[in-house]
Amino acid sequence: MNSTSIKPVSERRLRNTTSFKQSLQNSLTMAYRGLLKIKRTPEQLFDVTLQPILFTLMFTYIFGGAISGDVKSYLPVIIPGILVQTVITTSIVTGVQLREDMDKGVFDRFKSLPIARIAPLSGALLADTIRYTIATVLTFTMGYIMGYRPDGGFGYVVLAGLLVIVCAWAISWIFAFFGVIARTASSVQGISMIVLFPLTFLSNAFVPANTMPNWLQWFVKINPISHLVTAVRNLANSGTIGWDFSISLIGAAVIVVIFAPITVRAYMRRT
């Protein structure tokens, strides 16, 4: 509305498609929006800050003596377990927040803008890796304070952290899918917890599998969460990259390959 007048339609360069480069740029801008929102409402980080601190303290002191004889020798078992459990639980929030976000008026504007349709989705998922990073750093820090000295060394601990973050990002596509198809945010939370609770607890995250009945061991051994936990233990405690590491990454890739397209399609249908 400044003195310059509006450019007529015939003089505009108009394209009916979105390039890959534009999709990427739009996603990064949407991720930036996600980061700003976290900055503006830091209280939404309560879960990722408190959960690792609380769970690490609780589980270690409750189970430590019973499972490993003493707290100190339980730490190499429990810290990777807590890490995986906390970070993956955090990925539920992605779906919940996506649902809340999509109900807001601002999504109408995103829909009316000439941007890549996938951007609001991929941007949100990308921004959430910051949450996983916070949870990861805090869990390892808590472990360190309580006396955990991973034998793998700093480099392998970082690698273990990255592995968990990548896997959590992959899993967040599942919850993003629930987020897109569900009617309310609380139902997303509900469905996700039902899926995640058995997965994290029926694993080797807290308790060695060989103490469980046979039929349960069978499930625990095929549970992808167990493989991820084992991969993290191998990396952090002995600096080795084994078969579990590969299985975790393959599993993450499979999840993305399946859920990213169906999530985007469901999202497109709603927009």
């Binding site: 009916n16 498609t17 601002v106 009316s112």
Partner: peptide
């Protein structure tokens, strides 16, 4: 040609379509 149309329109909805959490 939805994507072209989106390049030449502006929409102001009945309910403010801006981000409440941001400035």
């Amino acid at each position: 040609e939805a994507q072209i149309v989106r390049q030449i329109i502006g929409v102001t909805g009945q309910y403010a379509s801006v981000d409440e959490a941001l400035s």
